[in-house]
Design a protein around this nucleic acid. Structure first.
Ligand SMILES: [Zn+2]
Ligand SMILES: [Zn+2]
Ligand SMILES: [Zn+2]
Ligand SMILES: [Zn+2]
Lengths: 129, 129
DNA sequence: CCGCGGATGGGAACCATTGTCAAATTGATG
DNA sequence: CATCAATTTGACAATGGTTCCCATCCGCGG
């Protein structure tokens, strides 16, 4: 049986933050932002809600070079990201050619249950003095 | 002043393991393999040597879904990987089109100091019953 | 063979993330 | 509105990969 998630203050607060952010942010950053807004939410709860949102594909997640998981509310549909290492600013990019290429390579070598990760990192204009 | 790394038994043992492996492996797996070979090496030392080899671009490193860093001695030159999630077996793949595409996208949006990550994960034929 | 400084290793420290569990909250029901 | 089961929360402990610390070791040039 599928259980609908409850509409708690904490869940709403996390969703609202993601709504307002335009770049990727870590769970801890989001936790801090919530605190500064006065809508304090336990760190575990922030993690849990981000995980849940990510599992239900409502938000995107990726890992940065430091091994942290970053979250962002993106448009629907499969895409990849051009992310600023300094400020998290993100441009969504579609690469249909890449998708097909990856799947073809995998099939060619007899791999199944295929997934791919593709992210582009750089420093955006605003963060380049 | 550039200091040449010393030729220690431990460094040689780690290099030898990488020489023999054909797939990606974690630091801990390599540590175990060394122990089973009788060429025991401290875990810290395994981490240090893998890091050093990775820094000097003598081996490749990537992170799996579990957040572990995996290492492999690959051919020289830029390439990406098709990796079996179950056994680590790896096929090196070149994607010149993807490289150019990624750089073009980044430039188009004013990003500098650009890098990209691209890995394909799947289950290889041997690991599919 | 000496001596210097890099290398080692065992254990502590780090740190993002997950687990625990009693207490609080939600939402359905009467 | 009151009741109550089930879900969610949050303070804290635990986890696990990785790095740090530092006394000791040892490769290597002289
Ligand atoms: Zn996205
Ligand atoms: Zn930026
Ligand atoms: Zn490689
Ligand atoms: Zn396999």
């Amino acid at each position: 049986m599928v259980t609908t998630p409850r509409n708690t203050r904490q869940r709403r607060a996390v969703a609202a933050i993601l709504e307002d952010l335009d770049g990727f942010a870590s769970a801890q950053e989001i936790h801090d932002l919530l605190r500064h807004r006065g809508e304090s939410v336990g760190l575990s709860t922030v993690y849990r809600n981000l995980q849940a949102l990510s599992d239900s594909a409502e938000i995107d997640a990726l890992r940065n070079d430091d091994g942290e998981t970053l979250y962002r509310q993106c448009s629907t549909g499969h895409h990849h990201h051009l992310v600023c290492r300094a400020c998290g600013r993100t441009v969504e990019v579609a690469g249909p050619t890449v998708e097909r290429w990856a799947d073809a390579i995998a099939a060619e070598h007899g791999f199944v249950d295929v997934a791919h990760t593709l992210e582009i990192f750089g420093t955006c204009g605003d963060c380049t003095p």
